[in-house]
Amino acid sequence: MQNKVDVAVMIGSGVPPSLRALGQNACWVVLVNGEPRGTAFASRDEAQACRAAWQALLRLEQSGSLH
């Protein structure tokens, strides 16, 4: 099965209260097969780094290296 890993932006009321309290009006989340994974990120760069980590992990799982 091919997994899809994306970064999505959340704006306004979709931003967690903890980030809104810091003045963030937008945040980024990592989606694996459409499901959110981990936390909301204050920067797109942080979310992209998490996306890359998920992609690496899923490649290892697919290759059987984690079994």
Rank of each mutant, 00 (worst) to 15 (best):
S13I: 09
L60E: 14
T39S: 10
V30F: 05
A49V: 12
A47K: 08
A49M: 09
V32P: 06
L57N: 14
V30H: 02
L22W: 00
F41W: 13
N3K: 14
R59C: 10
A21R: 15
D45E: 15
T39G: 00
L57H: 15
I11S: 10
V32Q: 09
P17S: 09
V7R: 09
V32C: 07
R37T: 13
S43H: 07
I11R: 12
S18K: 06
A8I: 09
A40R: 03
Q48E: 15
V15F: 03
W28V: 04
C27M: 01
V30R: 02
N3H: 15
E61S: 10
R37W: 05
R51Y: 03
Q55K: 15
L31V: 00
A56V: 08
S63A: 14
L31K: 07
A53E: 14
Q24V: 00
V32E: 09
R44K: 14
Q48Y: 14
E46Q: 15
A26V: 10
D6C: 02
Q24W: 04
W28T: 04
C50D: 10
P16E: 03
M1T: 09
A56N: 12
A53C: 04
C27P: 02
R37G: 02
A26G: 03
R37M: 12
S13E: 12
G64H: 05
R20C: 00
G14S: 06
Q48K: 14
A8L: 11
A49F: 08
A53N: 10
L57S: 14
R59N: 13
C27G: 02
G23Q: 01
M1D: 12
A49Q: 13
V7N: 07
H67S: 12
A21Q: 15
D45K: 12
D45I: 12
G12A: 13
C27N: 01
L19G: 02
A56E: 15
S13N: 09
Q55L: 15
G34F: 04
G34E: 06
F41L: 05
G23V: 01
A40M: 05
